[in-house]
């Protein structure tokens, strides 16, 4: 007896997964499988690529073509996969540290090229797998094992970073807003060009415990109360936006040439 979506898209022998109780990563992985199901994609025409970290273990559970690569380099490997097989739907799963620190350059250049890859960042605000070191998205002032007196860095806004670097689709959701997140992932996969879906996840074990955020359910309730859609925020007075974070679709640009299409046109021209 299993969820039919799980049976269809997961490697059942590898489940249950190793993520901690209350880790949000499983919520995003299920939404991804549901989005792929809604799009009716052929499993053999999907390739999921990851780097290193808690989130990057996801492809081990997903029953598609999958690649588990080196730290921060998922987008570099994915670029190779997409250029060699432009017909594949290439999906990168990355963490906040993997995507924006170790792989920060790969992220901005994949976005700049507008290559047809969907990147889903599981942003849990910490390096969970290695023991809770602060990451580029750890909020200013928060604690990590490498910031015992409070993080003095200012955090990256990954969705806006990708948009500024040239991504033609950029959106953010949270694990509380799982239905909306699923729709965003669906839109991102269908989009022709580089698309970024940043999902705010929860790490109750390291980030949560270190910063006294309470249980996993408390952390998810915080996401429910703290995030407002960018379309709603436009109509709200400033005082109602104080202390809130923005989610929603930040950028959707059509008509920009996708990288493998541009590459193919060079090949066709030189054949003549």
């Amino acid at each position: 007896m299993n969820n039919p979506i799980v049976e269809k898209y997961f490697r059942m022998d590898n489940l249950p997964h190793i993520w901690c109780p209350g880790c949000g990563n499983g919520i995003i992985m299920l939404a991804l499988a549901k989005a792929i199901d809604s799009l009716g994609l052929d499993k053999d025409k999907v390739c999921v690529v990851s780097g290193i970290g808690c989130s990057s273990r996801a492809p081990g559970y997903l029953d598609f073509n999958t690649l588990h690569t080196t730290h921060g380099r998922a987008l570099a490997f994915a670029t190779g996969v997409k250029l060699a097989n432009p017909e594949l739907e290439v999906i990168v799963i990355s963490g906040d540290g993997d995507a924006s620190a170790i792989g920060g350059n790969h992220l901005i250049h994949a976005a700049r090229r507008n290559i047809g890859i969907t990147t889903i960042v599981f942003n849990n605000n910490i390096y969970g797998m290695t023991g809770g070191q602060y990451s580029p998205t750890t909020p200013n002032g928060d604690l990590g094992t490498t910031a015992p007196h409070g993080n003095i860095d200012r955090p990256f806004d990954i969705a806006q970073l990708a948009a500024a670097a040239g991504a033609t689709y950029a959106a953010r959701s949270t694990v509380y807003h799982a239905n909306q997140m699923e729709k965003m992932i669906e839109t991102a996969i269908a989009h022709k060009g580089f698309s970024m879906v940043e999902v705010i996840s929860t790490c109750p074990t390291y980030y949560g415990r270190k910063n006294k955020k309470g249980s996993a359910a408390n952390m998810i309730a915080f996401l429910k109360d703290s995030f407002i859609d960018v379309k709603v925020a436009e109509k709200l007075p400033e005082e109602k936006k104080a202390g809130k974070f923005l989610m929603g679709e930040f950028k959707k640009e059509e008509g920009v040439v996708e990288y493998t299409v541009a590459y193919e046109s060079i090949i066709e021209r030189l054949k003549k």
Binding site: N3, V6, N25, L30, V175, E182
Partner: peptide
Amino acid sequence: CEMRCPDFAIFLG
């Protein structure tokens, strides 16, 4: 419950 269960342990069937 299904959409937020990180472990796929509860679902509508």
